[in-house]
């Protein structure tokens, strides 16, 4: 099949199989920042934003999201212009192996867009679709708290 998608703000026409999952289509087309850890909607490494909402891209048929807005971690910020959240993860020591990190950044981005001042419980809820085996989550939660503070500070200064 062939379909059009808006990926990180750019319109893209991609080829895919009718039963293909979005994670595979994205990875086959160079969006390797979307990781594939389990293909069963459990680990969250493949998380993307679909029309601004976080979803497991392994749980989506590519064909079903044509013409939709897809945002990967690179659409949030890249090496040359990282997002506050990405810097917060780096500074808090929340990145160990980093395989799960793009998914966590996506989940955090969605959370802070909706709720710029989350409680610890709300943070934990927001990232309950992401597994991390390295950090024990402690520094990830720290990073999200710090990111929220930084974003608020930035907004206040505007």
């Amino acid at each position: 099949m062939e379909g059009t998608f808006i990926i990180n703000g750019k319109e893209k026409t991609l080829n895919f199989n009718a039963d293909e999952r979005l994670v595979i289509t994205l990875r086959n087309n160079g969006y390797t920042e979307v990781k594939n850890g389990c293909s069963e909607g459990e680990c969250g490494a493949c998380m993307i934003l679909l029309d601004e909402k976080p979803v497991h891209s392994c749980q989506i048929f590519t064909a079903s999201v044509q013409n939709k807005n897809i945002q990967t971690v690179k659409g949030i910020g890249d090496l040359y212009l990282p997002h506050i959240i990405q810097n917060a993860f780096v500074e808090a020591g929340a990145v160990q192996c980093g395989f799960c990190t793009p998914g966590f950044i996506v989940a955090t981005y969605a959370l802070l867009n909706e709720n710029p001042n989350p409680t610890e419980e709300e943070i934990k809820q927001a990232i309950n679709g992401n597994l991390c085996r390295c950090t024990g989550y402690v520094k990830i939660i720290d990073a999200i708290k710090n990111a929220a503070k930084s974003i608020q500070k930035e907004r206040a200064s505007l």
């Binding site: 990781k35 690179k74 090496l79 990282p82 993860f89 780096v90 950044i105």
Partner: peptide
């Protein structure tokens, strides 16, 4: 507590894993 030198590359999805 120096920042991990590969952390930003990982956090932006630049860093490459085998696959």
């Amino acid at each position: 507590s120096k920042k991990k030198i590969d952390a930003l590359s990982l956090a932006t999805g630049n860093a490459k894993f085998t696959d």
